[in-house]
Nucleic acid binder design. Sequence first.
DNA 1: GACCCATTCGAACGTTCGTTCGAATTCAGT
DNA 2: ACTGAATTCGAACGAACGTTCGAATGGGTC
Lengths: 217, 217
Amino acid sequence: MAAASTTNARSAQRRGALRLPATRFDKRLGEILNHATDVFCRKGYEGASMRDLSRASGMSLAGLYYYFQSKERLLFLIQKHTFTTIVERLKARLEGMSNPEQRIRILILNHLEYFLSNQAAMKVLSHEDDALKNGFASEVAAIKREYYRICVGLLDELKHERGLQFSTRIAVLSLFGMMNWIYTWHNSRVDADADELARQMSEIFLRGVMNGGRARR
Amino acid sequence: MAAASTTNARSAQRRGALRLPATRFDKRLGEILNHATDVFCRKGYEGASMRDLSRASGMSLAGLYYYFQSKERLLFLIQKHTFTTIVERLKARLEGMSNPEQRIRILILNHLEYFLSNQAAMKVLSHEDDALKNGFASEVAAIKREYYRICVGLLDELKHERGLQFSTRIAVLSLFGMMNWIYTWHNSRVDADADELARQMSEIFLRGVMNGGRARR
DNA sequence: GACCCATTCGAACGTTCGTTCGAATTCAGT
DNA sequence: ACTGAATTCGAACGAACGTTCGAATGGGTC
């Protein structure tokens, strides 16, 4: 996780001089971010103290502040990196795929795969949605909006192709609800893996949204 | 909101001697719970301080502790009352109704109606799901389990009646995801009311779950 | 060995946290 | 008006909070 590279002046400087993309600084920051993600996931952002993070990452309290300016910025780095990654992966997977139904299945699979292999980070992203303030909040909100727009686009393609009629907004937000709620219940010892979950949720959602046309009344 | 009556010794004593179900104590406690619900909704449980609650309810910091023993118990009272109420209402509405599809529509309508007319309380219930510890946590978890079981029952009725095949667990949790996620996006100036939302989500969910039978593969 | 910059740390800063306590005030019944 | 119980409050408690600072290390280059 080299999330902070592009937004951290210290490592950006270094990157100009060195050819390796991941400096020592970035690596260490990445480790701290990973530990912090776990702690935020377990105790919540407000509930986790800097001393908790210090203990989890094995670095002194003061030492942490060498890597980031504040607790809030730490959460920001986690959320931005997580969200950026999931959007990037989605874009890459959608490339070259043109069937609208398939494209939605890919969105669902991509979301659930990333969710389950990065459960802690995704919980922090979902659950600490409005923990950031002002500038931090708006930058994350921008990525979220982009993700939302992509999903709206995919659904509109499907609507157009099949002449369906439903509220895209409700459909998109229902879909995200289905998927994001996972963090409250998924148990890897009981529940299916991402492939199977994606298949089942895709069936429910796509059959629900296709079929017929206008909802009754 | 007379949630605490049955669990508070002070008011239980009084209730033996008086004929009114809502004592002065209960009324005042209810007001405090309502204000606290707003504050927890806006700032989160951990993020809200007792001084915030004092300010919001117009009572001194020390005065609050006359009505409840701790901040954690306050959250517990809010969650328990909210959850109990929504389950009670559902049971009452289901009485006498036997058509499986209709019964599921009622569950969805009941959930969304209560959600939208008690947004703050429902956000606190959904979002501060694991903020409580030990005894408090398990008592709320018991109500949640009952609610979950009811929903599983309704879906199994539908499955049996129509010979459907799908994972009840995934279906139930997807449905709750769709519905509970509302607190992250619903805007009363833009979005439809509970009736209309319930209709749309019911269509998506029921069509998604019925139809055909087994999911492919 | 000396220098320099990057990294780490112990100790403390001022603030805010949840909670308590004893005194003051308000209320209901006479 | 008087009395005892119910209610409210100001002031304080020790603990924990996020953050800072200057000094102590570490590793690589002359």
